[in-house]
Design a protein around this nucleic acid. Structure first.
Lengths: 215, 215
DNA sequence: ATACTTCGCTACGATACCGTAGCGTAGCGA
DNA sequence: TCGCTACGCTACGGTATCGTAGCGAAGTAT
C-alpha cells in the first residue's frame, strides 16, 4: 500500500504497448476515429486489460497525450540571442516535419476547444515547447539584447506562430531562409516594444478584437 | 433537367436549416461529436430528409464547411502597407474572437491532417482569409514599399501566424499593442529578403527540417 | 382543382463501440 | 515450490449511430 507504483514487468509492458498504440492510432487517424477496440487490436493487449488500467477512452487518451511532452531536450545556450533562436527554431521546424506530436496536436487543440480537460493538457504541452524559447529570451534580456520590458510572450508568438502557421495552416515548406526571415523580423520588432502590463493596467480594444479566453 | 438548382422553397429552407444546425453543432461540440441524428434534432428537419439531400455525414460536413468562407468582405485599400496591414489584422483578430469559424477551424485542420478531402476544404478556406493580405502585399510591392522579390508567402506567415498562435496555441489575449508589434516586425523583416524560388531552384535543408507535405 | 414534389414520421436491420463478467493460463515474487 | 497477480479470451447486454423503406400529410405549381 505504500507504493502504488507498478513493479510487475507485465503491467509495465502492457501499459507501454497500449500507450504507444494509442499514440500511433492517434497519429494515423486522429482522435475522432480512436476506439478502445482498435487500440486493443493494434497493441495486442486485451481490451479487458486496458480497462483494468484505465477508466475509459478519455483517461487513456489523456494519459497518452500527457506523456507526449517527455523526452524534451535541454535548450542550448549559444551565448547570443540570434544563435539561440536559430537553434531552437531549427529544432522545432525539425519536429514539425517528423515528430508524432505534429500530427496529433491538431486533435488535442480541437478537443481543447470543447473540453476543459484537454485544454489543460494542451496548456501543458504548449508551455513545454515554449519553455526553451522563453529561457533564451530571458537570457537575452539579462544581456540587454532586448529591452527588459519587452513583451516576451509576444516575441514568442512572433517566432513560433509563423512556424506553426506553415505546418498546419498554409502547409508550406519550412526552409532555412524562412526561419532566418522570421528570426530577423522578431528581433527587429522586439527592440522598441514594451510589455503592456508593466506600464498600464490594461488596454481596451476598439472593437472587441480580443479572444474570449476559455482557460 | 436544365437547371438542377432548387427553386422549391421547401428544399431551400430544409437545406439552410440543416446547414446552420450543422455549423452550430460543429462549433459547440466539434467534428468528433457530430451526428446526423443530432443535426436532425437540432434543425427540426427529419433525418430522412437530410439523407435525401446529402449522401452522408461526410458530404454534409463538407458542404457546411465549404460555405463557411462566404460573406467575405473586400479588402480595404488604405494607400499604405502599414494601414492595410493594420486594417486586415484587426479584422482577423476580431473574427478570431467572435466568428464561428475560429471554433470550427481546429476540427477542419485536424480532419485535414488525415483526410485529403478536408485538406482541400481547408486549403480553400486558408486561401480565403489570406487573400486580402496577399492583395495588400502585392499593392505594396507595386509601390515599392517592399522589395518586389520579397517572399510574400513568408511575410503572410509572419503576420497571420502570430495571431493564430495566440488564438489556438497560447490562448492569450490579442490586443492592439500585439498587433502593432507584429506589423512592425514583419515590415522590418520584409525589407531584406528575397523570394527563394525567384533566385535559386530550391534549397535543401541540412537536417530534414521540412514538412512532409501531404497535399 | 389537380398532379407532383417534398416533408415528417415511425419503424426497421445492421453495425460498431462501450464497458463488464467469468474462467483458465501464465508469469511473478518469496 | 507455491500463492498471488495479471493476462488473454470469449461472451455478453446496452447503447448509439447509421442509412433505408414505406406511408400519409402538406406544400407547390399550373
Amino acid at each position: 500500500m505504500s507504493s502504488k507504483a507498478a513493479t510487475d514487468p507485465r503491467v509495465l509492458v502492457s501499459r507501454e504497448r497500449v500507450l504507444t498504440a494509442t499514440l500511433d492510432l492517434l497519429m494515423e487517424s486522429g482522435l475522432g476515429e480512436l476506439t478502445i477496440d482498435d487500440i486493443s487490436r493494434r497493441s495486442g493487449v486485451a481490451k479487458t486489460t486496458i480497462y483494468r488500467h484505465w477508466a475509459g477512452r478519455s483517461a487513456l487518451v489523456i494519459d497518452a497525450c500527457s506523456q507526449m511532452t517527455d523526452g524534451q531536450e535541454l535548450p542550448p545556450d549559444t551565448g547570443s540571442l540570434e544563435g539561440d533562436l536559430r537553434a531552437i527554431l531549427t529544432g522545432i521546424a525539425d519536429l514539425l516535419g517528423t515528430a508524432r506530436w505534429s500530427s496529433i496536436l491538431p486533435s488535442i487543440i480541437d478537443a481543447a476547444e470543447h473540453d476543459p480537460e484537454f485544454a489543460g493538457i494542451h496548456s501543458r504541452i504548449q508551455r513545454g515547447h515554449a519553455a526553451p524559447l522563453r529561457a533564451a529570451l530571458d537570457r537575452a534580456a539579462l544581456r540587454a539584447e532586448i529591452p527588459p520590458a519587452a513583451d516576451r510572450n509576444a516575441i514568442a508568438a512572433a517566432l513560433l506562430g509563423p512556424l506553426f502557421y506553415r505546418r498546419w495552416f498554409s502547409r508550406e515548406q519550412i526552409d532555412a531562409e524562412f526561419l532566418e526571415m522570421i528570426i530577423q523580423s522578431a528581433m527587429a520588432g522586439s527592440q522598441r516594444r514594451d510589455r503592456p502590463s508593466a506600464r498600464r493596467p490594461e488596454v481596451e480594444l476598439p472593437a472587441g478584437a480580443g479572444v474570449s479566453s476559455r482557460l
